[in-house]
Design a protein around this nucleic acid. Structure first.
Length: 292
DNA sequence: CTCCAGGGATGAT
DNA sequence: ATCATCCATGGA
């Protein structure tokens, strides 16, 4: 058992905020894998690690991010203030690049609970089995392993049409000349366009991979949740609002720590959704104006 | 610009 | 027990 001091960190919020999908909670304990290593982590003031390497944990949970400075840099508005208060201690973690890319390819058109099932199915079928404290966890399968599978096998993991995309991208990463580590040297714009060349990767998935796998803290993924928040809180009177305008706004308004701002707004919106729900059959936010 | 694929949980009736 | 809704990429 290793103890790690972790101020300004909330393990539960971090692992349950929709940035990573394989951790399983049992009370206050989280079972999972960090790269190829099984991990059991619990927060009781300090972090308590079983089979944990302090250096690995500090890096994975980004305990070196200067969270107070990041939060202090957020724009001061009602939505951001509420999200910031709600998400205290939530950190953007550093995920292995392939695992992050593959998982977010599987995330398209899926909800969090579903993405977790897919992640688990892929791990159980193609990953490596590890035991920790009588529990079994699985590592995420390598690109080589996925590339060696078939679309049919992937579909059996409930991937649907994503199976073809995941297989094609795995092949490019395994032996198709795409070196995910090497992409780290690129600028944000170049990295984004290279990621978007991969099958199953559009702007939203690319931004997730940049943020969670490449530590590009400016990246601002816009999914339906965030779009609802932006429309309701920052564009309540806007008539025409397309993807380009939204992107321009988020880049300018949220700036260098936009990824953190996005994650806080996202998690806060999701966790308070029942209150925000309207009674009408079609509206989640009654204040929203129709788009097109 | 619009429409659709594919699918399992979730919520509404 | 049905029925509608959630979800984002890529192609038509």
């Amino acid at each position: 058992m290793t103890k790690v001091r972790a101020p300004d960190f909330d393990l539960k919020k971090t692992l349950e905020s929709g940035q990573v999908f394989h951790w399983e909670r049992d009370g206050a304990r989280f079972f999972g894998a960090i790269g190829d290593r099984a991990a059991l982590v619990e927060q009781r003031g300090e972090l308590l690690l079983t089979n944990g390497d302090e250096t690995v944990i500090r890096n994975y949970f980004a305990l070196d991010h200067r969270l107070r400075e990041i939060c202090a840099s957020f724009p001061k508005d009602d939505a951001m203030n509420a999200a910031q208060q709600f998400c205290r201690g939530l950190r953007i973690i550093r995920q292995p690049k392939w695992e992050c890319l593959a998982t977010f390819i599987c995330s398209s058109m899926k909800q969090v609970v579903h993405i977790r099932q897919i992640s688990h199915a892929l791990r159980e079928r193609f990953g490596e089995r590890r035991k920790i404290n009588t529990r079994v966890v699985y590592t995420f399968p390598s690109a080589d392993r996925i590339a060696a599978s078939s679309e049919k096998e992937l579909r059996q993991c409930a991937l649907g049409y994503r199976a073809k995309n995941l297989l094609a991208t795995a092949r490019r990463v395994a032996h198709g000349g795409v070196d995910l580590e090497q992409l780290s040297i690129l600028s944000d714009a170049d990295l984004r366009s290279r990621l978007c060349e991969l099958p199953g990767v559009g702007a939203k998935v690319a931004n997730c991979v940049m943020l969670f796998g490449y530590e590009r803290l400016r990246a601002f993924p816009i999914d339906v949740w965030i779009e609802r928040v932006l429309r309701a809180k920052y564009f309540s009177r806007a008539r025409k609002l397309n993807a380009g305008r939204l992107r321009a706004f988020t880049e300018r308004y949220f700036g260098d720590q936009g990824g953190y701002a996005q994650q806080y707004l996202f998690h806060h919106a999701r966790m308070t959704k029942t209150k925000a729900r309207g009674k009408g059959k079609r509206g989640r936010f009654v204040t929203l104006s129709p788009v097109k």
